[in-house]
Every structure is written in C-alpha cells, then in structure tokens.
C-alpha cells in the first residue's frame, strides 16, 4: 500500500517535463550532483569537527560550546544546499531512487541523525557549562558524537551505493530485497 503510493508519486514526478530535462541534461545533472558532493566539505566537515571535538580528537583546547555554536551556521548552510540538491537528484531519477534499498536506508538514517542531533544539542546545552573547557565531553555527549559519526559514514556509503545497480528491482531480487526496496514494477519505468 505505502510502496504503491510512493511509486505513484515517483511515476508522477517522472512524467513531469522538468524531471526529464534534468535527467537528460548532462551539464545540469552533473552540476547538481557535484554541488551535492562538494558541499560535504562544508556540512559534514563542520559536523565531524564538532563530533571529533567532543571526543577530544580535534581542537581539544577550543571550548566545546564555541565550536558547536560557531560552526553551526556554516554547517546548516551546507546541509540546506545538500538537502536542495538531494531533492533535485531524486527528482531527476524518481522511480529508480524510490525503489532503491540504499536510498531507503539513507532516508531512515537521515531521520535518525536529525533525532540524534536534537538530543545531542539538548544534552549539551543542559550541561556544557560544567565541562566546556575539558578536552573530552561527558560520556553521554560522546555517545551522541559517535552515533553521529557512524550514521553519517553509513549515509555516505549508502549514497555511494545508490549509483550501483546490484540490488535494482529489475534484476529479480530475493524476497527480502524486494521487500526492503519496495519493488512495484521492476523499475520498468526507469
């Protein structure tokens, strides 16, 4: 039911003129994809430095609260650009992406990252005054930082895997993969 609904939306998007134009445009698609990838340096670059600071592995003598608050703005600008370009990349190839097991794992992990980031900031703001100048954050904050690093590593790996067709629906996958990918029509549309 949900897969059918997602599939119908993907087909509707695929039928739009702009989706075809974006997909078929060599330069525009590459510009969008390149922007999506290169913005990693701004978004994940800042995020990883904050996480590594909490673990005591990067800039340990810079106050944690200053690192988190000052790097937050460029990080959010980076994530906004990645979000917009990510939507455009999905819009360019909606049917295949909607039925990609890697894309689905990536989306679930993005939600997990958002929840983790909310809890991380909440816990940090509650207690940062007592450990701001310590080289390592308390254990709960460090756990959040490790989770963030692990989730984002898997997200980037999944993003890379989307380009490969090992588990595409049109190859007659196992029932488990078909369930995970939500295969509806074997991606005949793509």
């Amino acid at each position: 039911m949900l897969n059918e609904w997602v599939y119908n939306i993907a087909v509707w998007l695929d039928d739009t003129r702009w989706s075809t134009m974006l997909h078929e445009s060599y330069y525009m698609y590459n510009w969008v994809e390149s922007t999506h990838v290169l913005t990693l340096m701004l978004s994940l670059g800042m995020l990883f430095l904050i996480d590594l600071r909490m673990l005591g592995w990067a800039l340990p003598d810079v106050p944690a609260s200053k690192m988190a608050s000052r790097l937050n703005t460029p990080m959010l600008i980076g994530f906004t650009v990645m979000f917009i370009t990510g939507i455009l990349l999905f819009y360019a190839v909606p049917v295949r992406s909607a039925q990609s097991v890697w894309f689905r794992i990536k989306m679930v992990l993005l939600v997990a990252c958002a929840i983790n980031a909310y809890l991380f900031h909440k816990r940090m703001n509650e207690s940062v005054a007592s450990w701001d100048n310590e080289p390592r954050a308390p254990q709960r904050i460090r756990q959040g930082a490790i989770l963030s690093l692990v989730f984002w590593c898997i997200i980037v790996i999944c993003g890379r895997f989307i380009a490969y067709d090992w588990y595409d629906c049109n190859y007659g996958q196992t029932a488990f993969i078909e369930f995970m990918a939500g295969c509806v029509d074997g991606q005949e549309r793509f």
């Binding site: 990693l40 340096m41 994940l44 670059g45 430095l49 790097l71 790996i157």
Partner: peptide, 18 residues
C-alpha cells in the same frame, strides 16, 4: 573505499574551512 575517500575529504575540507 570511495565513500571513505569522500568522508576524509569532508574532514580535510572542514579543517581548512575552520
């Protein structure tokens, strides 16, 4: 390995930007 290349480039870029 490609993904870790991207991730390390992200960290490298982050240190340069900061």
């Amino acid at each position: 390995i490609q993904a870790f290349h991207l991730l390390s480039m992200a960290v490298l870029g982050g240190t340069i930007l900061v």
